[in-house]
Computed example of a mutant assay.
Amino acid sequence: MARPSIADVRKLNDGDINAQIDATRRELFDLRFQQATRRLENPHRFKEARIKLAHLLTVRGERQQAATATSAS
Rank of each mutant, 00 (worst) to 15 (best):
R39D: 12
L28D: 04
L56T: 00
L56V: 01
T37Q: 02
L53T: 02
A19P: 11
N18E: 13
I51H: 04
L40I: 04
S73G: 14
A19F: 05
L12T: 14
I21M: 06
A23T: 02
K52T: 10
D16E: 15
T37A: 05
Q65R: 06
I17G: 01
D16L: 14
L12R: 08
L40H: 07
S73P: 06
V59Y: 01
N13D: 13
L31S: 10
A54E: 02
A72W: 15
G61C: 02
Q34L: 02
K11I: 15
V59S: 03
S73R: 11
R38K: 07
Q20T: 07
L56I: 01
S5L: 15
Q65Y: 09
F33M: 04
T70I: 11
L28R: 04
R26E: 11
G15K: 07
E62K: 00
R38E: 09
S5H: 14
S73V: 06
R39K: 02
L57E: 12
S73L: 15
I17N: 00
E41A: 15
P4F: 05
A19L: 12
A2C: 11
T70F: 14
L56E: 01
E41P: 01
A36G: 04
A67M: 09
R50K: 09
E48W: 10
Q20R: 13
I51F: 06
Q20C: 13
V59T: 04
A7Y: 14
L28H: 08
T58D: 09
L12G: 12
S71E: 12
M1R: 08
R63V: 01
D8N: 15
A69R: 05
F29E: 13
A54C: 01
Q35I: 01
V59F: 01
A36T: 00
H55S: 10
Q64P: 00
D16F: 08
T37I: 12
Q20M: 14
L40Y: 06
L57D: 03
R63M: 09
Q35W: 00
R60L: 14
R50I: 09
H44A: 06
R60C: 07
V59H: 00
Q34S: 06
R3G: 11
L12I: 11
E41D: 13
Q65A: 15
I51C: 00
I21H: 11
K11Q: 15
L40Q: 03
V59K: 02
A54I: 04
A7K: 15
D22L: 08
A72M: 13
D30L: 05
F46R: 02
I51E: 08
R50W: 10
D16M: 14
D14C: 06
Q65P: 00
G15M: 07
I51Q: 02
F46Y: 12
M1H: 13
N13V: 08
A23K: 12
R63I: 00
N42A: 12
N18Q: 05
D16Q: 14
A54N: 01
R45L: 12
T24W: 00
A2P: 14
I51R: 04
E41R: 10
A23M: 08
R32L: 06
